[in-house]
Design a protein around this nucleic acid. Structure first.
Lengths: 143, 143
DNA sequence: TTCGATGCAAATAGTTTGCATTCTA
DNA sequence: TAGAATGCAAACTATTTGCATCGAA
């Protein structure tokens, strides 16, 4: 708890340094991001934050997530058809999402290195494997 | 022209065989799909169709595209943040989309074969490289 | 003449924005 | 006390749906 509080305050310092302000909603949101698992949608995060501070509006969550993304603290990814999910930039990985059951597998960035190399070689294209999901069928649904 | 008309009629036959009907809007939509380039959003397709038949509604385009996808004639892909794009199932390929300029590169399915093999080997996951775009930065924007 | 397809309006999901108010630095 | 952040309502984009009507088989 104390450890994650430290990390929260560190990000709030970062926020202040860039001309921003440390607010209650940001403090609570950051604690959620540090304490809870990844792959949370803005709506899910809002729900968790609202258990502590019911007045924090969903649009504030969106605005805060945008700001934190601008600072490089969080990133968002699109996993399939639904809403975007947000997680800490430090927990960086790619996603394999099942089109059938919606299940998500995390794959380390190294897993994409061959594709990344090939794209650079053949297309001079720099792949960012974190921002999108690779779709397909998981072991169970592929049968 | 005659050639694409033949192909259109072939799909309309398929539609009839599955209990559906050959309608004007479907005939025009199919001609657009066969004649125009790939990566067209429902809205773009509606616009092209409406040049010929102004009364065809966007919701009809969506319903027709759904039906054609169910029959395996077209597929849709999500290229980054915007709307989905539709193209013929016969023109199957993956997409590299630049996060900065939005430019799209098509890559043959073979380009993803190493990743596909690795996913099968390590996660028993069957990748479908066509349904989602791989994001990153193109040669120019990575500069 | 039946039942699938359509046009239209309205609903929906996810996200963004304008604006008056509140609160941090 | 200046200006950043917020709450709220409303706009917005992409898509879906309900329903009366129309049209293909």
């Amino acid at each position: 708890m104390t450890e994650s509080t430290d990390r929260v305050e560190k990000v709030l310092d970062l926020l202040r340094e860039s001309g921003g302000r440390a607010t209650t909603s940001r403090r609570i949101l950051l604690r959620c991001l540090f304490d809870e698992g990844p792959h949370r949608t803005a709506e899910e995060l809002a729900e968790v934050v609202q258990r502590v501070a019911p007045d924090v509006h969903l649009s504030t969550i969106y605005r805060n997530l945008d700001e934190l993304e601008r600072l490089g603290v969080v990133v968002h990814a699109h996993l399939g058809h639904g809403p975007a999910t947000y997680h800490l930039a430090s927990e960086t990985h790619g996603h394999l999402v099942c089109e059938v059951c919606g299940g998500t597998l995390e794959a380390p960035e190294a897993f994409f290195s061959e594709l990344t190399d090939a794209a650079a070689r053949e297309y001079h294209f720099v792949i960012d494997p974190r921002h999108f999901a690779v779709l397909g069928r998981c072991a169970v649904c592929a049968g």
